[in-house]
Design a protein around this nucleic acid. Structure first.
Lengths: 248, 248
DNA sequence: CAAGAGAACCTGTCCTGTCAAGTTTGGCTA
DNA sequence: TAGCCAAACTTGACAGGACAGGTTCTCTTG
């Protein structure tokens, strides 16, 4: 019966409610452990329908900012967990390294015979040649991470992967743009092992020192692995940290 | 006294739709890459309203089983990633160890002076005594994981934590039942280091061998840490694995 | 024959309502 | 005073509809 107001993408109603509520949680208007106004009150305040309020609350819940109990209300949780999905999967970042924004030195970019572990994970016959891009990431204290990205040869033709220059966009984006390759899921393996010689010299640690090794493979919808990224971190100086809400 | 009208989960309409669609995806009725019937058709088939269908599809999307594009439809994704939340946080399991269901031997349960790292993470003065429960988890090949759970003393009084017998329920559940303590979020740290002597002898590895160390702290809504669980895994024989969907 | 207009689908957003079920509170009763 | 109970809250699950805007296919037109 009523003509809607202009509905811009930026002015989605549940987005507006979500944004205001999130701000109030973060600035302490609704303190940790405190209760939010009831859905009914929020409907009145924002002049939207209850489903819209419910949608905003659902998203806050998904972000881990609130917790709601039937018959009681929604309560502010203790800590704002930063984008759980992001930090929970350190390897996602690896699959998408854009080499420009971090202080990374390209160590090598070229063809090599695949080491056994790489061949196995990429499902290639032993001894197959693959393309390797390897770089070293530093922070103010020196080298902190040795990253190796491995690709099957068929993926390299027609892309800039073989170029010795840094890519100006993320690897995944580049592959989609050039080859219409769309990665569907990732498998991430975390293990502890001793540094081999060249790792030790690159990272400036003792050979044999314990390192944290994160190995991520990117797969298409059919399950084929197209990309393998291997990150080596000095074990005693760096740790992976992850904060997430505990739901009952 | 009250008649519990058991509105079990199976009678919820969106649960029914969800379950049927999930089955069809898993048995290949809707193959990977294929398209699902439109919301309109699902409304007709299941005789529910569109919001109900939308809710089921939202959950499938959240599980990583489908992906939907505006104006086109919902498509089946490549691989069913098993409960990403669970596998992404190996430490969540640790906070909730129920010592009965796994083959775990209780090594010790008693008061000890907190090691520096433990005192720091539990925000206690150095030298404070804390309670330690330590056990060893085995599989068919022998010991695979050395787990230490540390608690501030104030938490132990009035609970069964001090008892040398295995708990018959999860630790978190036990703490909530006895002390109304409700953990709100967890911080998980993963690092690689060398095994110390007693770890090595418990796990049957060489002293100094690389081990994977997962340290999880459980915090209440105010940010106070109440529980610290430390798992040590032999680095060369075990890896943490995690599968998750790659959303664009 | 190629390009463009439009119809027919599709999902996303948002509305007004309805009923069920859990929680809290205050007043009444034994 | 202690305990029960009903009213008044709360959230949860649905229905059925409306419109906006993206995508695809077909049919008409230059």
């Amino acid at each position: 019966m009523v003509v809607m107001a202009t509905r811009d993408v930026d002015t989605l109603k549940y987005e507006r409610v979500l944004h205001v509520l999130r701000s109030r949680i973060q600035d302490g208007t609704y303190p940790a452990g405190g209760i939010l106004p009831s859905q009914h009150r929020l409907v009145a305040e924002f002049d939207v329908s209850r489903p819209t309020v419910i949608e905003a609350l659902r998203l806050l819940r998904q972000e881990g900012l609130i917790e709601t109990q039937t018959g009681r209300g929604s309560f502010v949780r203790g800590k704002a967990p930063v984008l759980a999905a992001q930090s929970a999967n350190p390897g996602r970042r690896l699959l998408d390294v854009s080499e420009v924004d971090s202080s990374a030195d390209l160590l090598q970019a070229g063809l090599v015979v695949a080491p056994t572990r790489v061949a196995v994970l990429l499902e290639l016959p032993p001894g197959t040649k693959v393309f390797l891009r390897q770089y070293l990431i530093r922070d103010e204290d020196g080298p902190v991470e040795l990253v190796s990205a491995w690709f099957p040869l068929e993926l390299v033709t027609g892309t800039k992967l073989a170029s010795p220059e840094p890519l100006d966009e993320g690897i995944r984006r580049h592959l989609y743009g050039r080859k219409r390759l769309r990665l569907d899921y990732a498998v991430e393996r975390t293990l502890s092992r001793s540094a081999v010689l060249d790792e030790a010299s690159s990272l400036g640690i003792d050979p044999g020192a314990p390192v944290l090794n994160v190995v991520v493979t990117g797969h298409d919808a059919q399950g084929k692995a197209w990309q393998l990224v291997d990150a080596v971190l000095p074990g005693d100086r760096h740790e992976l940290r992850n904060v997430y809400p505990l739901t009952q």
